[in-house]
């Protein structure tokens, strides 16, 4: 099992928590997390795995922090 932290931002927080701590089986990837949280893959425009862009099929490691954002911008 691995322990990971998931952080949600902007509209992803609607009807969800800001943060989740999950204990998951070893082969879990980012897409599994999106499914688990009921987030459409298309809507997750920014996926940061430990601060760096992560592909949805990336497998998670113990201690990973996953930050998920809908499409957002500014300047």
């Amino acid at each position: 099992m691995i322990k990971i932290e998931v952080r949600l931002f902007a509209t992803f927080r609607e009807n969800r928590e800001r943060k989740y701590f999950f204990e998951l089986p070893k082969e879990t990837n980012i897409l599994d997390i999106l499914n688990k949280l009921n987030i459409d893959r298309e809507d997750a425009s920014l996926i940061l795995l430990n601060g760096v862009d992560g592909d949805v099929d990336r497998k998670l490691k113990d201690g990973d922090v996953l930050s998920l954002f809908p499409p957002v911008g500014g300047g």
Partner: peptide, 24 residues
């Protein structure tokens, strides 16, 4: 557009605080 039509109007440019911080 998801950013111009939704992201920016909902939170303003301040939505960047978390994105930029999470990116370190």
């Amino acid at each position: 557009d998801p950013v111009a039509g939704s992201g920016l109007p909902s939170y303003g440019s301040a939505v960047l605080v978390n994105i930029i911080n999470e990116s370190g």
